[in-house]
Simulated assay, not measured.
Amino acid sequence: MNAATLPLPTLRWRRPLPGFGLSLGLGLAWLSLVVLLPLAALTIKAAGLGAEGWLRAIQDPRVQASLKLSFSAAFFAAVFASVVGALVAWVIVRYRFPGRRLLDALVDLPFALPTAVAGIALTAIYSANGWVGRWLEPMGLKIAYAPAGIVIALIFIGLPFAVRTVQPVLEALGREQEEAAASLGASRFTTLRRVVLPELLPALLTGFSLAFARGLGEYGSVIFIAGNLPYKTEIAPLLITIRLEEYDYNGAIAIAALLLAASFVCLLAINAIPSLFAHERRERGRD
């Protein structure tokens, strides 16, 4: 038997990471230490309050005012961020112009910028002596130290979520369907309503959910521009800090648990939206 007829050694493909069991164990260990254990501790503490403790904490008018402000501001900011984010994503994907790459990079700026810096900058712009506020306040439009300033701060931190969820869908969509609709005589509005929006709707809802969940727990960019007036511009995350400083741990736990539950519902919605739309498309295909 010569060298040419010798069987080649069997090469075993090796994964760059260790086996499934070890990788899964390490991943779950770190996830438990960083995420699951703190959330479990908060859930256990909240469950230990009992119905009476919950009612006592939630029926406080100051708590109700802060929760109402946080939820309403996060909702309106998420709606606005979803609409504007879709427009920004459309411009970045569909057009080529000088500064396009810079605009694409600026979308991620709120992710990299410390939220406290963003809050200070927004306050400097929209305060009574700021660049924009000095022109708006004489007309009766108060932004800084008002609910409107809170909404603007939440739009600032929520806009990247809306852009980055819609952008890959637009890139994958291409222009073939739009050109086909135009060749069949469809108007621009009909093409937008019947062709583009149905494809973007899951991404729009996902971006809205992400922006809403982020807005509920936002702290740094809001406290500077809000003014933090009880019953008027005091957000729920700030009230948690105040309750802790007052040694009212039950009150802080109750507010934190409500925000956690709302964020968990948003997380479930984010994961359920693609499945629901995929199921609907399958049903339409069968029909």
Rank of each mutant, 00 (worst) to 15 (best):
V196I: 14
E246G: 11
L200V: 05
A40Q: 08
I143M: 11
L204N: 12
N129A: 12
I255N: 05
P114C: 06
A81D: 04
L24T: 15
A89D: 01
A146N: 15
S23R: 15
N2W: 13
A78Y: 02
Y145E: 09
V83L: 11
I235C: 12
R284K: 14
R175N: 08
E52W: 07
G85Y: 02
A86Y: 01
P7W: 09
P237K: 12
V93A: 03
L268C: 15
V222M: 06
E283R: 15
T43K: 10
Y219W: 15
H279F: 14
L28R: 10
T233W: 12
I125Y: 08
G215P: 03
L154K: 13
L159F: 07
G251L: 03
A186E: 01
A73P: 05
R193F: 02
I92V: 06
R243Y: 08
R175G: 09
A254C: 02
I223N: 06
Y231T: 12
F156R: 09
A272L: 14
F97D: 00
R243L: 06
G133N: 10
R15V: 11
L8T: 15
A182F: 05
K232D: 14
R94H: 00
G174R: 03
L173W: 03
A252Q: 02
P230S: 09
I225P: 04
G99N: 00
A57Q: 06
S263G: 15
I120F: 03
V83P: 02
I44W: 13
A124P: 00
F264P: 09
C266P: 13
L6P: 10
G21N: 14
G99Y: 00
R243T: 04
E280P: 04
I242Q: 13
G53Q: 06
A148I: 11
L69R: 07
S275L: 15
C266L: 13
L258Y: 09
F277Q: 08
G285A: 15
A252I: 05
L201D: 08
A211W: 06
A148E: 12
